[in-house]
């Protein structure tokens, strides 16, 4: 009789986050996947130099992966399921557009300024709902973008339905790519470090059980506020980058796409990894571009792919890949 057995590959001494590295091979084993991601991202604009359309797609893909990271962080590390990523995009985008078009702030200032300012606005607006949990918080966050759309429409402020035009465009073709690539990598690796710090641990504690956090003398709302600020900072950066990419800001920034696609990406990529969010949007966004060929039938195929993924690989791609990477299976005699 034979049975399958899983064996750890690679480094022998391994506990949580601590590695004993003794050879170049082991360093490569650890750093390899990370370096591969960085390398691939940096090479993408070079490889796709002859097809500017796909360079644009890469940008959109990275914007979505930022949003997916923000969703993954809030949902799986803080326990706030936020269905309103488009709220962050919209607020960040409009802030950037107002700063750049109305107040003539140069682009290299308007993007960081809009990210911070937009994050402050988002956090303040979400502050009254922060004591909510689970489904209730999710529904409220779904309302916010809809609400802001109607406010802008009804009051006819910020260009109303026409939106704001005359926004400075991002400089050069390659720089446009590399800005978002560098920021995405910085946020990805930075956030991964952050969630393993003690403050990140407290946030994970909030997700598990906020009563105990209260009993530990920690203000839950303050922790949630910090987490929402971080997530909306990421979202607002994505929004303000998008506005400068399209040189136009309009109500479509609050579209449901920006809320739904990141969630789908996290589901496909694997939730609770952060990198899973990136991998998910690297699959979903190009897929949706390939499917343009099918015209309006596109959505059907898209849905089928999504459903198949959720039914047959509900753990997510990253979970599967990382298990395959760290362990191998073999058949042994019993």
């Amino acid at each position: 009789m034979k049975r399958s057995e899983r064996v750890d590959r690679g480094i022998n001494v391994r506990s949580e986050g601590i590695y004993a590295i003794s050879s170049l091979k082991e360093i490569l084993y650890l750093a390899g996947p990370r370096m591969a991601l960085v390398l691939i991202l940096f090479l993408l604009p070079v490889v796709l130099d002859s097809v500017p359309y796909w360079k644009r797609v890469v940008n959109i893909m990275l914007v979505y992966s930022l949003l997916a990271i923000s969703f993954d962080f809030l949902a799986n590390y803080v326990g706030l399921v936020c269905l309103g990523c488009s709220f962050f995009v919209g607020v960040g985008g409009y802030t950037s557009a107002i700063l750049n078009s109305y107040l003539h702030v140069p682009i290299y200032l308007s993007i960081p300024l809009a990210s911070v300012l937009g994050a402050v606005i988002c956090t303040l607006l979400l502050l009254p709902c922060l004591w909510l949990r689970g489904v209730y918080f999710a529904i409220i966050t779904l309302m916010y973008p809809l609400l802001l759309t109607r406010v802008i429409e009804a009051l006819n402020i910020f260009g109303g339905t026409n939106g704001i035009s005359g926004i400075e465009s991002l400089p050069g073709n390659d720089l446009e790519n590399y800005i978002i690539i560098v920021v995405m990598l910085a946020i990805l690796f930075g956030l991964r470090r952050f969630v393993n710090q003690d403050i990140g641990l407290v946030m994970r504690g909030v997700k598990d059980n906020d009563q105990s956090i209260r009993a530990s003398g920690i203000n839950v709302t303050w922790i949630k506020t910090q987490a929402v600020f971080i997530a909306s900072l990421i979202g607002c950066f994505a929004g303000s980058y998008l506005v400068h990419l399209y040189i136009w800001a309009g109500l479509s920034l609050f579209a449901l796409d920006f809320s739904i696609i990141p969630i789908a990406a996290v589901t496909i990529g694997g939730s609770g990894f952060l990198i899973g969010a990136v991998v998910g949007s690297f699959i979903l966004v190009p897929l949706s571009e390939f499917l343009r060929f099918f015209g309006s039938f596109r959505i059907v195929i898209y849905c089928v792919v999504l459903t198949l993924f959720i039914v047959f690989k509900s753990e997510g791609i990253m979970m599967y890949i990382s298990r395959r990477y760290h362990q191998f299976e073999r058949w042994v005699d019993v």
């Binding site: 994970r204 504690g205 598990d208 059980n209 105990s212 009993a215």
Partner: peptide, 12 residues
């Protein structure tokens, strides 16, 4: 205080 129904952080 402690809780009657234990409330640890299960994922940690």
């Amino acid at each position: 205080r402690t809780f009657q129904i234990m409330r640890p952080y299960f994922s940690l």
